[in-house]
Structure formats: structure tokens, C-alpha cells
Design a protein around this nucleic acid. Structure first.
Lengths: 180, 180
DNA sequence: CACTAATACTTAGCCGCCTAACCAAAGGCG
DNA sequence: CGCCTTTGGTTAGGCGGCTAAGTATTAGTG
């Protein structure tokens, strides 16, 4: 049975996702801090946008009976000839091996992927994209990429290039959050 | 000027987190789709950045014994005089009421917040910020905002303004993912 | 005034992410 | 050869997000 999830039109046009400059100023004032409110705003907006995109992405992939993580795993598998070990998958997806175990469990249950014992390493597995899995990817591709394109359609080519540069530098800066 | 920092030269295959233009092209080719690879790249990079920031944020707040959700709830509470109903919290945080129940459960367990029955509505609660909760916010504020500022430090003021504009337009575009 | 509908919150259960602990197999080394 | 460490994968448990269903209580209506 296909588990179709009703898309749930979340009417969240409310204020919630978008912090304001005033909020940032108020917070900084409250503690007498001298940080730049605009910088704080950028950070907060980026966080909000990330969360929002994450949710939108889940809703998007749910249309095809997938989740973001499952789709990324399938796509990565296909990009690699349809075979990859869980460890390699974890590395290229940027998640833990335990997470890969869970994702593969789900995908295997639906027949989109299969586990085969590794021929060269007795403790290793190979995750294989099944015909059904490849089929699923082929089915969703047109709509998927069309929506992706539509999402950035509000930006000109130059703006996109610029955005990629700025975003890359912000991603670099994210290490400031995790640095000791 | 394209200022490129050496972005983690990964031997191909283990490119975790940062999708490339070539990957986008390959995917589109595979299905004979005509979408703009650069547009797809922007979408993919934004998703990757969002996920990455989400994880970095969790690691950041974990330093103070909090999570992103819990911090946002505390901060929102403080911004409203320290009292708010679960429904209001859910609305302003952009999460479901069930999620708020879970967040408040955790925060209450640690004494950072308390539940009081509403005086005017027999079925309602009010979530109140405790002295300990306010204290916690005060403690983490300097480091928190310093790191936020550092994250954005790689951009000039003009670039930040530009980024905010571009990001806002992308957020608008996200509705393309959830539109019917 | 009683009955139904709407609202506030909680509970239950799924998913994906994590870390830590665990077993099994491989590799290195005396 | 046997031991010990490293590595591959899963398991267990926690968190935070969701939906759907359940319980109170309030509000609306005949």
C-alpha cells in the first residue's frame, strides 16, 4: 500500500518565521551587548529560512512517499552507479552511520533499496538501488526539478551567482558556532 | 571579485554537504530535463546550508544545556513579559501545539519555565519564565550573540543587506515546493 | 437550558537526526 | 599464531518535528 500523506496546507503566513531588526535590537539592549543588530538579524533570518526550507522540503518529498533524507540517499546511490556501502553513504550525505541504518531500513521496507553482503569485507554491506527505486527517482524527477527551479525563479542569473558566493561565506562562518 | 577560500578539497565521492554544478547537470541529463542547472544548484546549496546550520545551531545551544527549540521558546517568552499561552507560543514559533507541549515539558523539568492554570480560561495554561530561566538567558547571551555576529563577520554591511534581500525572495519562492 | 460545535492542551505514535554502547570481522604486531 | 585495536554496522535511547485522536472546557444555538 502506498502511504499517502495529505499535504496539510499549513496556513503559516503569520509573522512567525521572520524575525525583525527591532527584535534583535531589543534583545541586545536587554543585556547591554554591543553586537551589531544587523549581523544578528542575518543570522536569525538564515536560521528561520533554513527551518522553513526544511519543512517545505519534507512536504515536497512526502508527495512521492519519501522524505528529504530518503531522497538524498536514493539520489546519491544513483549518482554512484547504484551501489554504495552504508559508511560511504553516511560520509557523502553528512549524517551518522546510525542514521543511514534507519534510512536504509525504511527504504528497504518499501523495496526501493536492498542490502547485500559485501563480497570483499565480511562485516560490510552494500546498499543497492533496486529497479523500483530507480523507477521512483525517474517518476519524481520532472516535478522535483521544476519546483526547485521555480523556487529560485525570483532571482536573476547574476543574483543567483552572487547569492551562492555570499551563502558559501556564511557557511564558512558557521564554524564560529561550533568552534571551541 | 570572486574570492575563493579553499573549500575543503575533498577527493571525489566524499563531498559531504556541498553539492556541485556538475552533479546538478548530471542529474538533469539523466532524465533529459531542461531545468537550469544553476538554479537547481542554488536550491540544493540552500538546503544543504540550512541543514548544516541547523546542526551547528543545535551544537551551539547544547553548550548551555538547551536546544534551538527550547532557546527560541525561552527567548520568545522573555520578549513577551515572561508569560504566554502554549497556543500563542506555537503560533509565534511556527511549530505545532504538540511540539510546544514537548518543549515546555523539558523546560519545566529543568525549572526554566513553569505552567500555571489560566485565570480566565479553565482549559488554558500560561507558561511562565522562571527566575532560573531568565538567569539562563542572561548567562548565555554574551557568547550567543558574539558567535552569531562572528558567523556573519565574513560579510560587509552592504553584503549583508543584499543577502537579506535575496534570502527574503528565496523564502518567498519556497512556496513553490508546497504549492499544489 | 441543554446540546452541539469549537477551542486548548495532551497523548500516542511515526520519522530523522544524534551519541554511546555493542558485536563481528579485519588488520597490525610481537 | 594469538592478542589488541580499528573499523563496519546495528541497537538503544533521547530530542524535536509532525499528524491524529482524545479529554476538558468554553461558547454558540435552538
Amino acid at each position: 500500500m502506498t502511504r499517502h500523506r495529505p499535504v496539510h496546507d499549513s496556513t503559516q503566513g503569520a509573522d512567525h518565521g521572520a524575525p525583525t531588526l527591532d527584535q534583535a535590537r531589543r534583545q541586545l539592549n536587554r543585556y547591554g551587548l554591543s553586537a551589531d543588530p544587523q549581523a544578528v538579524l542575518v543570522a536569525a533570518r538564515l536560521m528561520a529560512a533554513g527551518a522553513r526550507l526544511g519543512q517545505a522540503g519534507e512536504a515536497h518529498f512526502a508527495r512521492f512517499g519519501l522524505s528529504t533524507g530518503r531522497y538524498r540517499l536514493l539520489a546519491d546511490l544513483e549518482d554512484h552507479g547504484g551501489e554504495k556501502s552504508p559508511s560511504q553513504l553516511a560520509a557523502s550525505l553528512g549524517v551518522s552511520r546510525a542514521t543511514v541504518t534507519g534510512l536504509v531500513d525504511g527504504l528497504e521496507r518499501e523495496g526501493l533499496v536492498a542490502r547485500r553482503p559485501s563480497t570483499e569485507d565480511g562485516r560490510g554491506n552494500v546498499v543497492v538501488l533496486t529497479a523500483l527505486g530507480a523507477e521512483r527517482l525517474r517518476e519524481l524527477a520532472p516535478e522535483h526539478f521544476a519546483r526547485m527551479e521555480a523556487m529560485v525563479g525570483g532571482l536573476t542569473v547574476e543574483e543567483r551567482t552572487l547569492f551562492l558566493d555570499l551563502l558559501a561565506r556564511l557557511v564558512e562562518g558557521m564554524s564560529a558556532l561550533t568552534a571551541d
